[in-house]
């Protein structure tokens, strides 16, 4: 996924679309919106961004899961097999992004990158609802021209890369905005 923070207005549509599509219980969320402000007046900067599980290529949650409940799916996403999850919470302690929570029904839950929708050829709920086109579903192994154009010449970052997790989410920094 490529998240273009230049156009994110922090509306939280992604959060509520996800909650409805995935029946996320009240008081929990699989994705969330962060507003980061910094700098010194009058040179202040602000970045809005939608965050979720990073579907790491070297995911500590998968490494530490004692029962194979957390695993890599064939498409490279990180998924949870609820029928193997004991709720030991080792994956939650292992995740440097705090992307997981304990579902009230007794298993650990997180963003599945709407696997059920992607299998039907649909986009994820969050991508489909984003009113500004900030969220872009991308296959990094097979990038289309539109994505290449989107990323071209921009400052793009991944979060906590130094954790060695190889996260699969990329953010186009708000510092790419004209005049930023």
């Amino acid at each position: 996924m490529v998240i273009d923070t230049r156009v994110c207005v922090g509306c939280s549509a992604c959060v509520y679309a996800c909650k409805q599509e995935n029946s996320v219980p009240e008081g929990y969320c699989r994705d969330w919106v962060v507003q980061e402000s910094g700098g010194e007046y009058p040179k202040l900067t602000m970045e809005n961004r939608s965050e979720r599980c990073q579907h790491c290529e070297n995911a500590p949650c998968v490494t530490y899961c004692p029962t194979r409940a957390s695993h890599y799916a064939e498409d490279g996403t990180v998924q949870i097999n609820r029928s193997l999850c004991t709720g030991c919470k080792a994956c939650m302690a292992a995740c440097p992004y705090d992307a997981r929570y304990v579902h009230p029904e007794g298993y650990v839950d997180k963003c599945s990158l709407c696997k059920h929708r992607i299998e039907q050829g649909l986009e994820t709920a969050c991508v489909s609802i984003c009113p500004t086109g900030s969220l872009n579903l991308v296959d990094f192994n097979n990038m289309d021209e539109k994505t290449k154009e989107l990323l071209k010449g921009k400052i793009v970052y991944r979060q906590k890369e130094h954790a060695g997790t190889e996260p699969s989410l990329q953010w186009i920094s708000a510092s790419n905005k004209p005049g930023a």
Binding site: Y28, W32, V34, Q35, E51, D98, Y101, V102
Partner: peptide, 8 residues
């Protein structure tokens, strides 16, 4: 500022 609410 984050809208993350997960109590865990």
């Amino acid at each position: 500022v984050s809208t993350k609410i997960n109590p865990n």
